[in-house]
Structure formats: C-alpha cells, structure tokens
Computed example of a mutant assay.
Amino acid sequence: MTTGPFGIQVGAEKIGASVIPMSAGKLAAQVKIMRDFRTTVLVSTPTLALALMRQMEEMNVDPRNLSLKSGIFGSEPWSEATRDKIEAKMHITATDTYGMTELFGPGVAWECPEKNGLHIAEDHFIPEIIDPDTLEPLLEGALGELVLTSISKEAFPLIRFRTGDMCRMDTRPCACGRTHARISRIFSRCDDMIIIRGMSVTPDQIAQVLSRVSGGQPVFQIQVTRTDGMDQVVVLVEISDVHFFDEMKKQRRFVEALHRDLSESLGWEVTVRLVEPGTFDPERRVIDSRKFE
C-alpha cells in the first residue's frame, strides 16, 4: 500500500475537484467513466496510461472525443519517448511528479508546463545533492543522490533523508516564473532497488521468496526489460544440488511454484527460468535494460 493515491485525492478535493478513484485492473470501466463524467485530468503511472490507450483502441474510443486535457504521471521512471507517445495518442499534456511514502507521498516535486525539471516544494523540503559514496555535497548540476530534509512535517520529520534516487539540481529561476529549485527527471538509483510498474522491488524480496520455495539460498539474477511500454521481469535461478531434479515433472512443478509465489508477492507476472551455473555474473543481482533517457 502506498500513500500516493490518497494524497492526490485529498489534495485535489481540497481545491474543489471531483475525484474518481479506480482500480488499475478495470481499464474498460475507466475509459467509460472518463467519457461519461468528462474527466479532464488523468493521474496514474505512465504504464497505466499506455494500457488505457490500448483499451481505447479496442473499444474504438477516440481520445479526441473525451474531455481529457492533461495527465500527471509518476511512481516509476518513464522516458521522453513515452511522454511523446502519450501526448500524441491521447492529445493531452503529460507532466512528471515525484514523491515517496517516507515524505508524505506525492507533492515533493512537480513538473511545470516548461517540462525542464521538477520543482521541489522548498517551503516543505530542503534539497541537497551528494556523492552516494563519500556523502559529500556536490556542486550544482552534478549528478548525485538526492537528499531531503522535511521542515513542515510534525509526526515523522526526517533530516537529510537519503532517497537513493540519482538526479541533478538547478537553482536558477524557471521560464515558468517559479523560483523553487528544480531536479532533473529521475531514471536511476544508487542501490539495487528497482521501480517496476509503480512499485519498489529489492533483490532481498526476491531472495526471500526463492529461499522459502527452494529451501536453500539460490543464486539468482533479476532482469528487467520494457516491451511496448510494459515492464517485463525475468528471474534467472542457477541450478544446484539443492533443486536439481532428474524428472522433468518435478522440475516443472518447482518452476511453477517459484512463478506463482513471486507473482503473488510482487503483484504481477514474473517469468522464472532455471539456468546452468555460469550463465550470469552472480555479483550483479539486477540487470535493468530499460531505456529512459
């Protein structure tokens, strides 16, 4: 459970907007609601926006006949190519947003119509960019880890919170007229955590499931790719004496159990493959081949 949807809903209602929360799995219903209620703004992950586009095509719904004017997309990295595709297909303006559960969810930074970085809410946060290895502050414009200090939170204040997200910061006034510092769009991290379909996943999560099912400590690698705007996850597991089966039926049941438990744990389909030792570098637990920039 994340704080993002609730924060967006409460914030939108506070300024007088009507909000219709919907499950990500009810694509046809979402298209009908956007049409019937003349929705003007779509807030979602970019992955969901692409899925809605495909759903509209299946339903023969022309986005130009809807009332949509803009889209706010976040919770996962997305490229300029994806932005161009969403804007061209849905005939809207697509902007980025940045937030995290530890810092009250959405609202840490928002992209303005200039689309030249995300404005940090400096009335609530003090941003810094540091070297993730030395922890020393970096000069403006240098790529480093974003560190944030909350100055308005009361129940759960954070001082120099390391986000793990890599970006650059620009303190020059923006062409839109705002003077709050901007951070570049975030496409990478300084650790093994990966963002897939709006959810954070770590190798340790995968390891726990693999260990529970196999009864050992299997050597594995997570491979992430993106096809037609959808993230695909493949987990390679080395064959060892612990889970080597001379019967294909037992091996198939083992792979099916891994697939079922991993998919249930993460919330989406995960492909599992057993491979020979030496197939991959065990020191590299994550291979993210997605292209965002």
Rank of each mutant, 00 (worst) to 15 (best):
M1F: 10
P5R: 05
P5A: 11
V10F: 12
V10Q: 13
A12Q: 14
E13G: 11
E13V: 13
I15K: 12
S23V: 02
A24P: 05
G25D: 08
A28I: 06
A29N: 06
A29S: 12
I33L: 14
I33Q: 10
M34A: 13
M34V: 00
D36Q: 14
R38S: 08
T39H: 05
V41L: 13
S44K: 00
T47N: 13
M53C: 11
Q55N: 13
Q55E: 15
M56P: 01
N60A: 09
V61G: 00
P63R: 05
R64E: 11
R64F: 09
R64H: 15
L68N: 05
L68Y: 07
S70V: 09
G74Q: 01
G74C: 12
G74W: 06
E76T: 01
E76P: 00
P77D: 07
P77A: 09
A81H: 09
D84F: 05
D84R: 15
I86F: 08
K89F: 09
K89R: 12
T93F: 08
A94Y: 04
A94I: 06
T95C: 15
T95L: 12
T95R: 13
G99E: 02
F104A: 10
F104Y: 11
F104H: 09
G105P: 05
A109P: 01
E111G: 00
E114L: 10
K115Y: 06
N116G: 08
G117E: 02
L118E: 07
I120M: 09
D123A: 10
D123L: 08
D123Y: 10
D123G: 01
I126V: 06
I126Y: 10
E128M: 07
I129M: 02
I129R: 02
D131Q: 03
D131E: 05
D133W: 09
T134H: 03
L138R: 07
E140W: 14
L146E: 06
S150K: 07
S150F: 09
S152W: 14
S152G: 12
K153N: 14
F156Q: 14
L158Y: 12
F161S: 00
F161R: 00
R162F: 03
T163L: 08
T163R: 00
G164R: 06
P173R: 09
R178F: 09
R178K: 15
R178Q: 10
A181N: 03
R182L: 08
R182M: 01
S188E: 12
M193S: 04
M193D: 01
I194C: 03
I195K: 15
R197S: 14
G198W: 07
Q205H: 14
Q205G: 04
I206P: 00
I206C: 07
Q208V: 14
L210P: 01
G215P: 02
P218V: 13
I222V: 15
Q223V: 13
Q223S: 08
T225R: 15
R226C: 08
R226W: 04
R226F: 04
T227W: 13
Q232C: 10
V233D: 00
V235W: 00
E238S: 06
I239P: 00
I239V: 13
S240A: 12
D241C: 11
D246F: 13
E247D: 14
K250R: 15
A257F: 05
R260P: 08
S263G: 01
S263M: 02
S263R: 06
S265R: 07
S265C: 03
S265M: 05
E269S: 15
T271S: 13
T279H: 04
P282F: 03
P282R: 02
V286E: 00
R290I: 03
K291D: 10
F292Y: 08
